[in-house]
Every structure is written in C-alpha cells, then in structure tokens.
C-alpha cells in the first residue's frame, strides 16, 4: 500500500468516525426515550385525560392542544411567510431598505424563544385582550417560525433558474403568472422542507407558550380559539418537575409522542415533496 492510498484510508476513517459521532447522540436519545417511554404507550395513554394529580390516565388534552397549536401556527405563518418571501425575491428592488429587511429577518431567527413568549404575552394576551388562548399562542409561535419560513422560501425561490422567468416573461406572461406557473412549482420542495422544520420546532417549544396559552391542568377540550389548552412540551415540563411522584414512563411516554408527532410531520413533507417532484419531472 503506497502513501497516497494510506492517507486516503486514514481520511475516510476519520470522516466516517466524525459522522458517527454526530449521529450517535440522536440515536442514543431515541433509544433512551423509546426504551423508557414505550411502557407508557397504550390506547388509554393517548385518549384519556390525566387523572389523580396527573399520576394516572393519559395525555389526550395535551396531544390535541399541540396539534391545534401547530395548525394555528401554520394558518398564520405559512401565508405570511411565503407571501413576504415572494415579495422580497420577485418584486422588491434591491436597495438599502430591502437589504435591511432581509438582514433583520435572518437575525430574528436568533432571538431566544422566551423573548418571543414575553412579546406574545405583552402584545396578544394583554394589549389585544386575547387572554391566554390558542389564538395568542398560535400567533406567538407563528412569529417565531416566520424567519425560518421566510429564509428557506427565499432560498428556494432564488434557486429557480433565472432562465425560467425569462422564458415565461418572453412569452408574454405577466409577473404573477410567471411566479405562479414557472417559479413556485419548482420551489415547493424547498419551501416544504423549511416550513416543516420550522413547524416542528414550534410544536416542541415550551417558552413561547408558557405565558400565552399553555394550561397546567385542563381535563377538557377547548371550545373556541379563545380557550386555553394543555400542550405536550409544557405538560412534559410539568410532570417532570412540578408534580411529585409521576411515574417516569409517563414523562418519557409524553416525549415519545412529541417525537412521533414531529416525525409524522416530516414523513408527510417527504411524501408531498416526492409527489411534486414526480409531477414536475425535475
């Protein structure tokens, strides 16, 4: 074996090892959560209210609450984020003002989530009198998800070749027709990826919902968007630290359900992406 081959072998080994190091924590977490939480999994756990000081029963209201919050977040952040990204990429002129907007969008994603929580509490709960409610919580989570949605949509739009736009415009299509038929279809996979990533984060966040929506214990389902709900991440926090003597498998079971929910969202996005790819024959 000569020197170059040996060096290559060493390089591959090192790279492979580093990759393994990166994946290892994820695998360990999954193993840990599944092995300890699997015991809690049952139809009853998913469909029952918590009972007896949350030491028995299930997580049904928290599960429903989180799903409602994700839907609410999506309802606000998806149209706002995608439309503003379209404006920034396709319509806005490149000047100091738009560059500042783009920069601040990127920087918004670095703001700690508890700050979003405080902002949501002041603006939606107190100032706009929404109270602690699904509406206030969804809006807060939506604002938190916007930067990632805008940034990934922007990148997906910019990745569509300029020539597609020229073809469409040169045939006499209007700007909006061009965006609608010649740009968006090719950007959808990228938009989906960013959106799901962002919504997964929203599903798992505790800080933004702490003051805006999450209920400690609420053994019934909400009747309107102005009601409070329980939510999985906050419920996990509560049963792990605030309530004594909750069986360990309940905490890990709650975590497992949250992970499964996020995985499910990712699977849906993968299926959708494959569907759009096939239709458009990239």
């Amino acid at each position: 074996m000569n020197g170059a081959k040996l060096r290559e072998k060493i390089a591959f080994t090192v790279l492979g090892f580093v990759t393994l190091l990166v994946i290892l924590p994820i695998l360990l977490i999954l193993y840990y959560v599944i092995s300890r939480g699997w015991g809690a999994m049952s139809w009853e756990f998913l469909t029952q209210n918590p009972r007896n000081g949350m030491k028995e029963g299930g997580i049904f209201p928290a599960l429903v609450g989180t799903i409602l919050l994700v839907i609410g977040t999506m309802a606000f952040s998806l149209p706002l984020g995608i439309l503003s990204a379209i404006y920034l990429v396709e319509y806005a002129r490149d000047n100091l003002f738009t560059r500042m907007i783009k920069l601040s969008v990127v920087n918004l994603s670095g703001i700690p989530s508890i700050v979003y929580g405080l902002f949501g509490f002041t603006v939606f709960v107190v100032f706009l009198h929404f109270g602690a409610s699904i509406l206030a919580g969804s809006l807060t989570l939506a604002i938190m998800s916007l930067p990632v949605i805008i940034t990934s949509t922007k990148e997906a739009l910019e990745a569509v070749p300029m020539s597609y736009r020229e073809i469409s415009l040169s045939l006499g299509a209007t700007r909006w027709q061009t965006i609608r038929y010649c740009v968006l279809p090719y950007a959808i996979p990228g938009i989906l990826t960013g959106t799901v990533l962002s919504l997964s984060r929203a599903a798992g966040e505790t800080a933004p919902i702490l003051f805006t929506v999450a209920a400690f214990y609420l053994p019934h389902l909400p009747r309107s968007v102005f009601d409070q709900v329980m939510a999985l991440p906050y419920h996990l926090y509560v049963i792990s630290t605030q309530v004594p003597n909750v069986p360990e498998k309940f905490s890990f079971g709650t975590g497992l359900v949250l992970i499964a929910l996020v995985c499910l969202m990712n699977v849906v996005s993968i299926v959708l992406r494959a569907h759009f790819r096939k239709k458009k024959q990239w």
Partner: peptide, 21 residues
C-alpha cells in the same frame, strides 16, 4: 409588456426548455 412580448417573441442562445413535457 405582456402584449409587446407576445407579439415579439425571442429564442435564446442556449436552448432553454422548461423541465416539463
């Protein structure tokens, strides 16, 4: 624009087709 560009079409230097049928 849309009327003018429809009346005056253009063929680009590199063949540029859309990735559809």
């Amino acid at each position: 624009d849309s009327v003018l560009r429809r009346k005056i079409g253009i063929i680009f230097a590199m063949p540029q087709v859309l990735p559809i049928t």
